[in-house]
Computed example of a mutant assay.
Amino acid sequence: MATARRDGSGDRESPAERRRRNLPRQTGSKTAAAKSSPERDQKPKRAHQEPDSDDEKGRARARHSLKAAQVARLAVRQVHELTGREPEGVTSLERSETGWVVGVEVVESRRVPDSADILAVYEAELDADGDLVSYHRVDRYARGRGNER
């Protein structure tokens, strides 16, 4: 199949000329670009369907469940945003029936020396998707006296 050149002659265009003009390569009756269009390559989207059996529900839940480290990071970030206090770390992490319960230690008050800082532990409850359901302070203590409570 001959392609017309810019100058109007019917001679075949060389591959170098085609690249310069940025034309797709002709193959058969369709161009290569048309064969691999983004619309054609995408799979049709399915409407959300509820799983039929308990086994399918379990597999669906496993696909959407978060790893413990991800949950811990989410809890630390959300407690920090809500309290405005600097997190020290995660003190506990437990899976519950509805999601996760995470203990986050924060610095309530900085002092000099550091051993006199006032720390607090906030318990954050997150659902299975990692969204914060509730949080509250469960303990408050001086950094150097954590075990004397």
Rank of each mutant, 00 (worst) to 15 (best):
R12N: 12
V121N: 11
G8H: 02
G28I: 04
S92T: 15
H48D: 13
E39M: 10
R77Y: 12
A142Y: 13
R143N: 08
A4G: 08
R77D: 14
V79K: 00
R21V: 08
E50M: 14
E148D: 15
K30M: 12
S109F: 03
G8S: 09
E94S: 12
A4I: 11
G130E: 01
P38I: 10
G144I: 07
P44C: 09
K43S: 12
A32S: 15
G8K: 03
V107E: 01
V79L: 06
R73Q: 15
L119Y: 09
H64L: 07
H64E: 03
L82T: 06
P51R: 03
K45W: 13
P24H: 07
V102I: 15
T3W: 09
R73Y: 06
R19P: 05
E13L: 10
A4C: 13
G144K: 11
D7V: 13
D114G: 10
E50V: 15
R145D: 12
Q70E: 14
H48V: 13
R6F: 10
R40A: 11
I118N: 04
Q26W: 13
E125R: 07
V101W: 07
E50K: 10
H48F: 15
P24W: 09
R143P: 00
R95K: 00
V138N: 11
A47L: 14
G28K: 05
E105D: 07
S96Y: 00
R149P: 00
S37W: 10
Y122I: 02
R20H: 10
E56I: 04
H80W: 08
R95W: 02
V112W: 15
E13Q: 11
R12W: 13
E94Y: 10
E17F: 00
H136M: 10
T3I: 15
A124Y: 00
E148H: 13
L74D: 03
G146V: 12
R137D: 04
D55G: 07
V79D: 06
D54W: 15
G58M: 03
L82C: 01
K57L: 02
K57M: 06
T91S: 15
Y141A: 01
A69F: 12
A32F: 14
S53R: 02
Y135K: 05
V107Y: 00
Y141R: 09
E108G: 05
G8R: 07
Y141V: 06
D117C: 04
R18V: 05
E88D: 03
V112K: 11
P24C: 06
E56S: 01
R46L: 11
R111K: 05
G8E: 10
V107W: 00
Q42F: 15
A128V: 11
G84L: 08
I118L: 05
R6E: 12
V133T: 14
S115R: 04
Y141M: 06
T3Y: 11
E13T: 08
R85T: 01
R140W: 05
S92N: 15
D129K: 04
L74S: 05
A34S: 15
D7R: 08
Y135C: 06
P44Q: 14
T98S: 03
A116M: 09
L132V: 05
A47D: 14
Q42M: 14
D11I: 04
S109R: 12
A120R: 02
Q78C: 06
Y135M: 07
L119C: 00
L74P: 01
V106T: 02
E125Q: 06
E50G: 06
R61I: 12
Y141L: 05
L93N: 09
